[in-house]
């Protein structure tokens, strides 16, 4: 699959996605594409439907209209078995971790393996250790319960679990929200490393301007039920759309932009 990265290939394709909650229209005929091997970021104000869109891509929510294709599968008419198979091909890191409170960190990471593979306990243990290290956590963390972890460790543990089945596609929900700047910087690096070393396609929701400038290849801005613009941060900064401009105005935006342009990738 590594040679596929050379050719642009659409991993996720959304066509005319419409979502309503009661009378409130969240997505109004939204179109979006994500290519293989890229780091794609979704941004938008609160209530713009980023999280809902992510939930729709990972089969947690069904749009009212439109079509979503992920890894060549149309999500709408997926059988239970096909859905089960597809879920093994992606990993999801939840905003609050979503780790199972009754299990240790290592058991959490091993759970997908226990469910979907016939590996022995020793093998699962070894894989869990490897994923723990990959996510940048000390081996001792594996024996801890999720409630004992700090916010940053929780996200890393969640990431380790998302990586357990060696997915092709990774979804990150607010990977740096609630982290101190140093931990957030570590996440930046980790996300880039995962893409570069394993050729993962990464879709993330974020508000973090540094993450957007430093890591994202392309950024999609959601607003008023549609994608208002897609492109690299540099491309977006030249667009005049009212939903996009706030990301480039204001001192915080200029600061992130400045540090990104002065420090070439």
């Amino acid at each position: 699959m590594s040679d596929a990265t050379a050719v642009p290939e659409t991993v996720i394709e959304l066509r005319g996605v419409t979502t309503r909650f009661g009378n409130h229209v969240v997505h109004d005929g939204l179109d979006l594409e994500v290519q293989r091997g890229e780091i794609f970021a979704l941004v938008g104000g609160s209530g713009s439907g980023k999280s809902t869109l992510l939930r729709e891509m990972i089969l947690l929510h069904r749009p009212d209209a439109g079509e979503i294709r992920v890894l060549g599968n149309t999500l709408r008419d997926l059988s239970d078995d096909a859905a089960r198979a597809l879920r093994k091909r992606w990993g999801v890191m939840f905003q609050h971790g979503g780790l199972f409170g009754a299990l240790t960190v290592k058991e959490n990471i091993g759970l997908p393996l226990r469910e979907h593979t016939d590996l022995t306990d020793a093998q699962i243990d070894a894989i869990a250790d490897a994923k723990l290290a990959l996510a940048g956590l000390e081996p001792e963390v594996g024996a801890q319960m999720p409630s004992e972890l700090s916010g940053g460790m929780m996200k890393r543990a969640s990431l380790a679990r998302a990586l357990a089945l060696d997915p092709e596609l990774l979804f990150l929900d607010e990977p740096t929200a609630g982290l101190d700047p140093i931990s957030a910087g570590g996440v930046d690096e980790l996300v880039r490393k995962l893409r570069d070393q394993f050729g993962l396609t990464i879709v993330m929701i974020t508000h973090d301007l540094d993450l957007l400038w430093q890591v994202a290849d392309r950024v999609g801005v959601l607003g008023h039920g549609k994608v208002q613009g897609v492109g690299s941060m540099a491309e977006l900064s030249r667009m005049t759309n009212a939903d996009i401009q706030p990301y480039f105005a204001g001192p915080r935006a200029r600061g992130a932009q400045g540090s990104a342009t002065s420090k070439p990738r």
Binding site: R55, R84, R87, L99, E115, H116, R161
Partner: peptide
Amino acid sequence: EIDALRTLG
């Protein structure tokens, strides 16, 4: 955690 369960199949 329920969402996580679902996404883990």
